[in-house]
């Protein structure tokens, strides 16, 4: 009996924190369903094209741009950097599964030993540091080039983020909270712009659906005149509502990226992308 009680208590401990929140599977079903109703003409697979998946007029223009993609040079620079040995003779390939090729769809992942979310950019810099090299700056430049090359080798693979345990779900829940919580002097949530009013115009910009957001990062933005990582974009969208942005690779942004990418599970990687 004692034994039964103990295992019952253990089961409760596991079940309670999970049970008190909607399950990620339920969230995912709700998320997909929401956009399917909002944009009945957009097939699920097409959300990887961001705002262009819901805006046929601007799509044509964008498809022309994609014929001579502005990020092409970044991919080749990224490939060169990726293959260049560190001072100790090792390379990035030694740090990653499958030599780092075709793995973008598994990032960010929850590391059950470290109990934290690891993004692709974090893994790139940790690889450098493990091999005695200085970390790169987080938001643009070489780290974005390397990340772009790694995404490019993963094109067509299906995004597959896993929530392995209750600790992982805590990170997921934190990211979900960030996504839905109003913030900043202007008091707006990510969900306000990219869910509830996705497809509407904010001034002259059409708001993209959050479904598929994370399929194509890092992204080349004409406004930036170059590539930027996911956390660069997060900082921009936080600042827009006059909220203080978090640091790139802070736990807060890693948690947000974890939730945000999980919401795009089942879609293809098509990074790097090009946007206005």
């Amino acid at each position: 009996m004692k034994k039964v009680m103990a295992s019952f208590a253990a089961a409760l401990l596991v079940a309670l924190p999970l049970g008190s929140m909607a399950s990620p599977e339920d969230d995912l079903a709700e998320f997909r369903d929401y956009y399917a109703k909002r944009f009945p003409n957009t097939p699920f697979e097409d959300y990887i094209n961001g705002v262009y998946s819901i805006d046929p007029p601007s799509r044509e223009q964008w498809e022309e741009i994609e014929e001579f993609p502005p990020y092409e040079l970044n991919i080749s620079q990224g490939e060169e950097l990726f293959n260049k040995p560190f001072a100790n003779g090792k390379t990035y390939a030694d740090c990653f599964d499958n030599g780092g090729m075709g793995i973008r769809q598994n990032y960010p992942y929850f590391d059950t030993e470290r109990n934290e979310v690891v993004t692709l950019e974090l893994a790139i810099n940790e690889c450098r540091q493990a091999n005695g090299e200085k970390p790169l700056k987080w938001k643009r430049g070489p780290i974005a080039d390397i990340s772009a090359y790694m995404a490019y080798t993963s094109r067509g693979n299906i995004i597959d983020i896993k929530i392995p345990n209750a600790e992982a779900q805590k990170w997921y829940d934190r990211g979900k909270k960030h996504f839905y919580q109003k913030r900043g002097q202007l008091n707006m949530a990510c969900a306000d712009c990219h869910k509830f009013y996705s497809g509407n115009l904010i001034r002259a910009d059409k708001l993209s659906p959050a479904l598929g957001h994370l399929s194509h990062f890092p992204v080349y933005r004409s406004k930036w005149g170059g590539l930027g990582t996911t956390h660069r974009r997060y900082g921009g969208c936080n600042s827009q509502v006059r909220a203080k942005p978090f640091k790139a690779q802070s736990a807060e942004y890693r948690a947000l990226e974890y939730f945000h990418t999980y919401m795009s599970n089942g879609l293809e990687v098509n990074g790097p992308g090009a946007r206005k």
Binding site: Y197, N200, L201, I202, R203, A204, D205
Partner: peptide, 18 residues
């Protein structure tokens, strides 16, 4: 105010429609 970000207002160009 940046009201044009979301509202059509007479005399304002490129209004949003939120």
């Amino acid at each position: 105010g940046n009201c044009l970000a979301c509202h059509m207002i007479a005399g304002g160009e490129l209004p949003g429609n939120i």
